[in-house]
Design a protein around this nucleic acid. Structure first.
Lengths: 336, 336
DNA sequence: TCAATAACTGTTATTGATAACAATAGTAAC
DNA sequence: GTTACTATTGTTATCAATAACAGTTATTGA
C-alpha cells in the first residue's frame, strides 16, 4: 500500500500538506488540495487508520458484546448499533459470550488491548462477577453502555424498556379480557429487569383486585426449551389457568410447542401474551400477541449515547427508558 | 495506558525483552520472563494491538459483509465466523449492506483503510458491479471468501450448499409423497445458486417422468412479503397445485400467511417444502419441512479457510460445497 | 585454558500517520 | 517602505510496538 510520503513526493509538497488535505482541507489551498486528491485517487491511496490510531489514540471501533446473536432478540439491536455507528464512521466489533463470564472478561481484555473507543454490553447477566467486571471497565474510563440491563449500585449508562410498565400492560390486557387465573413463565429473577416485570404483573393484579399467588410463578431461563419445560411443569400442577404471561417470546414459543403436543388450543383454551416481539412471532399460529420492545431503537440509541460521549471525551451518563407497545395479534381471547 | 518501556524499566530490562516475553517467550529466560509477566500483570499492561499492527501489517481483524443481520439466515453464519475467528484471536467487524452496491463498495474502502486481514462476503448479489468489486478486492490481494454465493468467471474461494442436490432432494421428496403438480416459489434467478436450485427441481421432475412447465415457476425476492405475494399470484392463476417448493424458508413463511388467510390447510390441502431451516421454522404450525443448510458450518468453514490463508500469506482458493439435509416435519403429506 | 557455540539481552531503525511548532509568502495598513 | 497579520506550507518529534542486527554472558569441548 502506498503511503503519505509517496503522495507528498508526487505532488511536490510535504507529507503534512497531504495529511491536512485529508483531515483539515480548509487549511490547504484549493489548488494544492485538488492536485493532492487527484494524485491520491490515481495512486489508490487511503490514509492508514492504524497509523492514525497510533497517533490519535482513537480507533473508531466500538465493541458489541452479547450472549448469542442466534437469539432473535439481538439481530435488530445489532442492526441499530451498526446503522448509527457507520453514519459516524465507526465500525462494530461483534462478539458472543454465551453468558460465560470468562469469555466476557477475556473479550474486554482483547478490546482494551485493541484500543477500542467504547463498549456496548447487551444481556450481561448481572451477577457479582459481572458487576465487578463492569465496575472495572468504568474505572478504566472506557465509555460503556448497557442494553436491556441495568445493574444496581453501578453508575453506568443504559438503554432499557420500561419493564414494569410492559408487564403491567400485558397483565392488564389479559385481565381486561376477563382472565383472572394468569400463570407466569418467568425469566430468571436474579436479573433486575425481570424483577421489574414481575412487579408490573403484581401491580396490575393488585390494581384489579386479583390476589397475587407466588405459586403461579414458574421460572425458566429464556430459552425455547425452558419455555416448553416450564409450561409442562405448570400444566402438571394446575389445569385451570386461562392465560399465561411469558416474560419473553422465546419462552412463548416453548409454550406453543407444549400446547400443540397436548391439544391445548391457543387462544380458545389458553391465552398467551409475552414480551419482545421478535421477528418471527407474527408467523406463529396463532400469531403471538406480545409487548413489542423497540430493539432496533435500543441498539441505535445505545450507539448514539456511546459515540457522542466518545467524541466529547467523557463517560456517558444517560439512562434511556423506552416504552414497549402492545401488538395485538391472535393469541389472546376473551374469557367466557 | 502503560507502555512497554515502563514495564521494561520496572523490570530492569530492555523493552525488547518485554516484547519477546510476550511474543517469543522461549527466547527469554524463565526467571526474567516471570519477573516481566508479574510486573506486567500488576501494572495492567497489555501490548497495544495498534502499535503491533503498525509494525507487522496485520490487524487480526476480518470483515464480515452481509445484506442484513435481521434476516434469520445470517445470525448462525455470523456465529460460526465469530467462533472460529476468536479461537485464533481474530475479531470480526460486522457490516450490513441491504444489498446496496454503494454501501458495499464504501465498506470495502473502509476495511482496506483499516488494514483488515481478510473479508467474508455473504449474500453478495452477483450483478455486474458486484463482480467488478470482487475482482478489485482479489486484485488487491486481500484474502476473500464468499458465503452462499459464487460468481462465474471470478476465481474466488466460497462456501456454498450443494444447491442442485438440495432442490433435487426436496422435489424428489414431494414426488415420493405422490405429488405431481408442484409449484415453485423461486428466489431471484439472476443469482447463480438459485439457478442451480431450479435445475435441481427440473432434474428431479425429469427423473420421475413428470413434465416440467415454465409457468409453474413464480419468482419472488427472498422476503416474507414476496412469498406472500407470489403465493397469491400462484393461487389466482392455478388452484390445483398439491405442493409448493419454496426456495427459502422466509418465502415459505409468506406462503403460510397466505394459506392461513385463505383457509388453505397445510399439509392437508397443500404440502410445502423449502430450503434453509432457519431457527424458527420448527415453530410454525405445522412445523416446516425443509432442507437444512449448514449455516453455522458455512460461517465456521469460511472463517477457517480465510484465516488459514491469511496465516500462510496467500490468497485462499478453496471451494467448499456442503450437503443440505432433509428435515422432515409436518408441512408435507402423502397425496391421496 | 581458550575458542566455539548457545542462550540471552540490548541498540537502533522502522512503521504511517498527526501534533506542535516554525517558517515563509503575500497582502493590507500605516 | 516597514510592520502586522493571515494564509499556507514545512520540519521535527512522537505514538508503541516489532524487525534486524549486534552484543554479552555462560557453557561446552578439545
Amino acid at each position: 500500500m502506498v503511503n503519505i510520503y509517496e503522495i507528498a513526493k508526487k505532488a511536490g509538497v510535504s507529507h503534512m500538506t497531504v495529511s491536512r488535505a485529508f483531515n483539515n482541507p480548509e487549511l490547504v489551498s484549493e489548488k494544492t488540495r485538488n492536485k493532492i486528491m487527484k494524485i491520491a485517487n490515481e495512486s489508490g491511496y487511503r490514509p492508514s487508520q492504524v497509523a492514525r490510531s497510533m497517533r490519535t489514540k482513537k480507533t473508531n471501533y466500538i465493541g458489541l458484546i452479547l450472549p448469542d446473536i442466534i437469539n432473535p432478540f439481538f439481530p435488530e439491536i445489532v442492526r441499530g448499533v451498526d446503522d448509527y455507528a457507520r453514519k459516524d464512521k465507526y465500525n462494530v466489533i461483534l462478539a458472543n459470550t454465551d453468558n460465560d463470564y470468562e469469555v466476557q472478561a477475556s473479550l474486554v481484555e482483547m478490546f482494551l488491548s485493541r484500543g477500542i473507543d467504547g463498549i456496548i454490553l447487551s444481556g450481561i447477566a448481572g451477577g457479582k462477577k459481572d458487576t465487578e467486571l463492569l465496575n472495572n471497565i468504568i474505572k478504566k474510563g472506557i465509555p460503556t453502555v448497557l442494553i436491556d440491563r441495568y445493574i444496581p449500585d453501578v453508575n453506568s449508562s443504559y438503554v432499557i424498556t420500561d419493564n414494569f410498565r410492559a408487564a403491567y400492560d400485558a397483565t392488564n390486557y389479559l385481565v381486561g379480557l376477563g382472565h383472572e387465573r394468569i400463570g407466569v413463565i418467568s425469566s430468571p429473577q436474579k436479573i433486575k429487569i425481570f424483577q421489574d416485570r414481575l412487579r408490573g404483573y403484581k401491580a396490575a393484579l393488585n390494581d384489579n383486585d386479583i390476589v397475587f399467588r407466588d405459586e403461579y410463578i414458574f421460572e425458566g431461563d429464556e430459552s425455547i426449551s425452558s419455555g416448553y419445560k416450564t409450561a409442562k411443569n405448570l400444566f402438571t400442577k394446575y389445569d385451570d389457568f386461562t392465560a399465561i404471561f411469558a416474560m419473553c417470546d422465546f419462552m412463548a414459543f416453548g409454550i406453543y410447542k407444549y400446547c400443540r403436543e397436548n391439544n391445548i388450543i391457543i387462544p380458545d383454551d389458553l391465552s398467551v401474551i409475552s414480551i419482545d416481539n421478535i421477528y418471527t412471532s407474527a408467523f406463529l399460529t396463532p400469531p403471538l400477541t406480545t409487548m413489542s420492545q423497540k430493539k432496533y431503537e435500543m441498539g441505535y440509541s445505545a450507539a448514539k449515547i456511546l459515540i457522542e460521549s466518545i467524541k466529547k471525551n467523557k463517560i456517558p451518563d444517560t439512562q434511556l427508558v423506552l416504552k414497549a407497545k402492545l401488538i395485538e395479534r391472535q393469541s389472546c381471547k376473551k374469557v367466557k
